[in-house]
Amino acid sequence: MYRIASKTCLNPTVTQMEIVAPLVANKALPGQFIILRVDEDGERIPLTVAGVDKARGTVKIIFQIVGATTELLNHKNEGEYIQDFVGPLGVATHTDGIKKVCIVGGGVGCAIAMPVAQEFHRLGAEVTSIIGFRSKDLLILEDEFRACSDKLIVMTDDGSYARHGNVTVPLKELLEAGETFDMIITIGPLIMMKFVTLTAKPYGVPVTVSMNPIMIDGTGMCGGCRLTLVRDGKRITKFACVDGPDFNGYEVDFDEAMSRGRMYFDYERHAHEQVCNLLKGAN
């Protein structure tokens, strides 16, 4: 069992927790993730390591409440326990030789992007961050990004805060104006990552995308997290949990990934409703 050392609501649908897991805290690097189960019989879900405190042995996670399991997790309070917490999994984000980086985050993807931005900042790279949200009340981590970015651009889809529009708009402006980056790292909804990649393509800037397929074990055993890369015309199968989650954006078959992500759509909606009803009953 793993104790919840702290819990903070970042916005109505995004929560931050610190979990006591010293072995994971000791090892985790930016870009890696953990898998947790809230309770016995619960589902295994992957969440990115948003930070660690080695001295306290805690691992920070930031999650959006989207379905049954995240709802149940959000129902737990400081001092309570979750059943399982395993990690760090996946390959850490490559930072070697990157002096100038652009981080493009969308929605809760910003939580996944934040530790990566912080790491580049710590390594002395020049960091430009573009973070986008649907609207003002979904904004998270603005201060954290400001602290680790040389330049920060905040976007909202509906114009309720900062600049109006989506993240590809300022990215294109920067590239058009002759700005160069050693790497663009983008984390967020698949559709956003696809368009960030397409935006960068004419300028020849390398793009790393962070893939979030449905996972179970996270150790390469089930193959459920597989995705297809197209390299030199050949289709190659990769497992996001062990080969990723970071991949070369120009190689990823986004359309297939989007289709696979919707495999359990009806089931998930149903399960979420059930849990909501259950929790309502408990309150």
Binding site: I216, C222, G223, G224
Partner: peptide, 16 residues
């Protein structure tokens, strides 16, 4: 077609 929805490895199917 191995990436279509509804294609499982036996490990995934049995693990689930």
């Amino acid at each position: 077609g191995e990436s279509l929805k509804g294609v499982y490895s036996a490990n995934e199917f049995l693990t689930r």
